[in-house]
């Protein structure tokens, strides 16, 4: 199983420990990641995609063209990258006029979008291409009795006609991937509510702190001991964002967040340090004891 590895910007720049562990666990599952140096920012769908749609689609089409040259499908480790590249891929494949217009611009820099490959988020690859059973085979130290709140992240399921993944109203994919590691998932009220990334972008800290207070409290009241997600933007909200929200609202709990590849790494037998947990802003002693005592 071989993919062009689209690591994005957020993870390599702000959360490199997640890039490290993602490379390690995906490799361990037999997924070969091919690096393409020419890849640029996807670009981001929330900021860039809203600001200038034509340029957004063109830059994304250029990225897809690099993977097409190698004859490889793309694997991403970010919801934003997935949404941008999947939207571009699907839109241009079904709209020859727009494809022609974008290819005319791309020809100026020497590329062409052909529409020959597919784009998948790593959670999609794990569930659709690899299968839960293959993951279970690699679990050496199961995460028994660990209660996890899952957050799939809006941009991986919506808009459903583009993303064609999971159920936006009742997401269950991450649940089954967590169950494969031996852990339990908790059902919480605000499960489908956005992490609040837009407030972070425009610096509306008060609104963001309130939103995170409600979302994290909902997870905590459902009995969660940690959170998992497959999106670095959501990860950052629940880690750094939690720290800031807890200060303003005196949250009486700490809920560490683990990127799904980190959780997978722990179940494969890596230590907290090896999966990069020591770089996290929000750490919790009882969670650490639970992991270390397995």
């Amino acid at each position: 199983m071989k993919y062009a590895f689209f690591r994005g910007c957020m993870i390599p720049i702000k959360l490199p420990h997640i890039e490290g562990i993602s490379r390690k666990v995906l490799g361990n599952l037999g997924i070969e990641l091919v690096d393409i140096d020419a890849f640029t920012c996807c670009p981001d769908p929330v900021v860039f995609g809203a600001a200038d749609r034509l340029t957004w689609l063109t830059v994304a089409a250029r990225n897809i063209a690099f993977a097409e040259e190698k004859g490889l499908n793309i694997i991403t480790i970010c919801n934003g990258c997935s949404q941008t590249l999947r939207t571009t891929n699907k839109t241009l494949k079904s709209d020859p006029e727009l494809k022609g217009r974008i290819n005319k611009i791309l020809s100026e820099v020497g590329y062409e979008f052909l529409g020959k490959i597919e784009v998948k988020h790593f959670l999609q690859v794990l569930i659709e291409d690899l299968g839960v059973e293959k993951i279970k085979e690699k679990v050496n130290v199961p995460l028994n009795d660990l209660k996890v709140a899952t957050h799939i992240g809006c941009h991986l399921t919506n808009p459903s006609e583009i993303m064609e993944f999971d159920d936006p109203e009742d997401p269950i994919v991450l649940e089954s991937l967590v169950a494969a590691l031996g852990a339990e998932t908790v059902d919480y009220d605000l499960k489908t509510q956005c992490c609040g990334v837009s407030y972070a972008v425009v610096g509306q800290r008060k609104s963001l702190n309130m939103l995170l207070r409600d979302k994290l409290t909902s997870m905590n009241e459902a009995g969660a001991q940690c959170i998992t997600t497959g999106c670095p933007f959501c990860f950052q909200q629940f880690d750094l964002g939690q720290l800031l929200s807890a200060k303003e609202h005196n949250l009486g709990f700490r809920l560490p967040v683990l990127f799904y590849s980190q959780l997978l790494g722990l179940a494969m037998g890596n230590s907290l340090e090896e999966v990069g947990y020591t770089y996290h802003k929000v750490r919790d002693e009882s969670f650490e004891k639970k992991i270390e005592s397995r």
Partner: peptide, 29 residues
């Protein structure tokens, strides 16, 4: 912030500035 991120992406190919700390961390990892 929106204007800055778009400008940053176009001029460097990355959505965020790469700091010296990022590079140190990557080396360590």
């Amino acid at each position: 912030s929106i204007m800055d991120q778009v400008r940053q992406t176009i001029s460097t190919g990355f959505g965020f500035p790469i700091t010296a700390y990022t590079q140190t961390l990557r080396e360590k990892l």
